[in-house]
Each structure stands twice: as structure tokens, then as C-alpha cells.
Design a protein around this nucleic acid. Structure first.
Lengths: 211, 211
DNA sequence: TCAACTATCTTAACGTTGTTAGGCCAACGG
DNA sequence: CCGTTGGCCTAACAACGTTAAGATAGTTGA
């Protein structure tokens, strides 16, 4: 009597095909430019079929974001093991930029839109906003660096320092996401520029001899 | 025989009403969420009437962006008079942040939404994009600072340095615009944080004794 | 003065979008 | 064997940006 399980497996398979096609098309052409009909055509179904697996186009995007958000969490997890708080801040920034450039579409949704209306998303609700935990993680590293006396005394506010560093990383990736197509800018490689921003800010914040 | 002029004036008036309504609605609800029909209803015209003044919805957006860029350019003009390139960079950053916080909606329209490429805007072509000139202005100050030997030798790429500084300023204001309502973050005053970012980056970039 | 013209705005429609209602059909449970 | 269910389809909805064609003024030339 494994037929029920086979049905379930086939359903999950179709669902995954939808997710795969949607991810590739969202990333390649953008969210707005990707139509439900095009996704359906790609996997050789009718648009209506998608609605038997996902409530709406937005729900489809949110599901993809949830799945790919683990990449950021993983990146942070590796950084968490670094004991030195200043070096950890550098790792956090690198992981953040890497996530943003690897998943620009999801980054745009998470950090560049005013308020995604995910209020009634029953899927994985309950726990706090992943962005909230990410900020707390960054702030913690700043607080440790301050407590260890690694920064100049005027930079003693963990929130302020966290916001400064976040701004630097968010600035470079969000500018590239929105303005990369402008031909009047000779964009430098974002990862390299981000690394130099961290380097410069780290030196500017540091107490003692310029490292 | 001033009737011709009156007609022209009335046409310009209608055109301006369209622009005003569109700006307010783009800014309040976003570009995609604002429909041509809604703009028309607001000014008590038919949607078609708008097309007698603007070629498309994109053209409408572009016109608004052009006007806003000019306002930003005015803010830069004061900074242009500062001879010392490093101090000028600080003034440019302050003017940029001031513009963004004074006209947050305009800023969002200009720097936080991906502008669709308008292929052939022959209307007032020839002169460069105002955003292009703004970036060139920033880049020029960076180049002068580099040429004057004010920065460490590894920071010799004017484009890279310009993008670093731009990222810092854009990051802090764009984060505040999108995430200000999030309750899990204790936002510091953006002008102050921006000033500290400039301070930190300036010190991190500078050659010689820490100033 | 009156016909011709032009500018401005309207009505009606086209094609496309996300989404939904209702039905068809194979596969399952009793 | 028959009723129910799950998975997908056809057809359609309202709303979108945009366009074609026409109405109604005001202006202009003879």
C-alpha cells in the first residue's frame, strides 16, 4: 500500500520543479519580469497548476527566500567560531556580501524593500525575523570588540558601530544591485571593494598604532 | 494675441499636475504599485490624457528623477567651492545625506529603485545624465585627493575610493529608509552616524599620522 | 464670417498580467 | 463496483500599460 507515499513523492517532485524553474527565472530576469505563465510553460504545466502548490506568486518567492536564507546563516555560523571580535567582524561582513551577491533577488527582498507583507505566512512562522537575529549577531561582535578595548574610546556605542559597519556592506551591495546597469560608472568588483571598506573602517576605528 | 501663450501655459500646468500627482504617488506607494489609471483619477483626467504629455509611465518616472537629480546637484555646488579635496569629500557626503534625509521619498525613487532602461530618450538628449555628473563630481574629488598624496598608496584608484565613500553614505540612509520602522534596532541619528562613517573612513584612508 | 485646422481630452478596445471558478479524469478506499 | 479524492485543465475574471479613433473645443486663414 505504498501508493499513497508515491503520490506524495510525485507531488513533492512537481513542487520542486516549480521552485527550481521559478528560482532560475527570478534570478535571471527579475521578479516582476517573470510571469506565472512563463514558469508554467517552462515546466510544461498550466499556470493554474502552480496554484495547487503555492498560494500566490509572492508565496513562491518567500519560499525561495526561506530556503536560500540558510546560506547567510551558514556563513555567519562559520564567522561565529572566530574568537577575535575584530576579525570576526571582518568575516561577518564578507559572509554578508557573499550572500547578497549570490542571491541578489533575495537580498533585495530582505534588505531593500520597505516592508514585505509576509504577515500571514503560516509556513515557518513563530521564530523571530532572521534579520533580527543577524543584527543581534553583528551587534554582539561590536560589543565584544568595544569591551576588549579594540576601538578608539569615542566609538563606544555598539549599536552605532554596528550600524556603521552594516551601512558600509549594505551600501556597496545595494548600489550594485540597483545601479549596475548604469554605464557611466566603472564598477569595481564588489567583493574587493567591500573588503577594502572593511579594511579602511577597521583601521579608522582601531585604537593604537595603525595596523 | 496672447491666447497661444495662454494655451501653452495651460498645457504646462496640466503637465505639472501630472508630475506632482505621480511623484507623490510613486513615492508613497512605489512605482509598480502606482497605476496610470490612479494617477489620472487623482487629477481628474482619463488615463489617455497622460499619454499626450508623456510617452509612457517610464518616461514619467525619468522626468521626475531628472528633476530630483538637479536638486541634489544644487547641494553639491556649495561643496564644490571647498579647495581641500579631503574636506570637500566630507562636504559632499554631508550634502548627499542631507538630501536623502530631507527628501527621503525622492531619494528612494532615485537610488533605491531599479530604474528600467529607457532606450531612446531623445527629448533633451545630448547632455549627460545628472546622476552621471554627480558621480563624476565625487570621483573628481577622490582623484584630487589621491593626486595630492592624501591617501595611503594602496588607495590609488579614484573609482574604487569613490564607490567606497558612496557606499558608506548610501548604506546608512537607505537602511534607515527601509528599516526605520523595525523595532528590533535602536537606530542612532543618521546624520551623526554618517558623519562618523566619514570620520572613520577618512582616517582609515589617510596617509601619515592619524589625524 | 465661415470653413479648415489643430490641440486637448474622451470612449473603447487590445494584449498581458496574477488569480479563481468549475469541470474532467485517473487513482484510491470501502 | 462505485463514490470520493487529488491533480490538473479550460475558461474566465479584473486590472494593468498602452493605443486607435473620435469628439469638442479654440485658433487661424480667406
Amino acid at each position: 500500500m505504498g501508493s499513497k507515499e508515491r503520490r506524495e513523492r510525485q507531488r513533492a517532485e512537481t513542487r520542486q520543479k516549480i521552485l527550481d524553474a521559478a528560482r532560475e527565472m527570478f534570478v535571471r530576469h527579475g521578479y516582476e519580469a517573470t510571469t506565472m505563465r512563463a514558469i508554467a510553460r517552462r515546466i510544461e504545466y498550466t499556470p493554474t497548476a502552480i496554484y495547487h502548490h503555492f498560494r500566490s506568486k509572492d508565496a513562491l518567492l518567500y519560499e525561495l527566500c526561506d530556503a536560500d536564507f540558510r546560506a547567510l546563516a551558514d556563513g555567519f555560523r562559520a564567522a561565529a567560531r572566530v574568537e577575535d571580535p575584530v576579525e570576526r567582524l571582518d568575516r561577518i561582513g564578507a559572509a554578508y556580501v557573499d550572500f547578497a551577491l549570490t542571491h541578489p533577488m533575495h537580498y533585495q527582498l530582505l534588505f531593500m524593500t520597505r516592508r514585505p507583507p509576509l504577515d500571514e505566512l503560516d509556513g515557518a512562522a513563530g521564530r523571530g525575523d532572521p534579520g533580527e537575529r543577524a543584527y543581534a549577531f553583528l551587534r554582539q561582535a561590536c560589543a565584544e570588540a568595544i569591551a576588549a578595548g579594540r576601538f578608539r574610546p569615542e566609538y563606544g556605542d555598539a549599536d552605532e558601530v554596528a550600524q556603521m559597519l552594516w551601512a558600509g556592506m549594505h551600501g556597496i551591495v545595494s548600489l550594485q544591485v540597483t545601479k549596475q546597469q548604469e554605464e557611466w560608472i566603472e564598477w569595481r568588483d564588489a567583493r574587493r571593494t567591500a573588503a577594502r571598506i572593511r579594511e579602511v573602517m577597521s583601521r579608522g576605528l582601531a585604537r593604537g598604532p595603525t595596523s
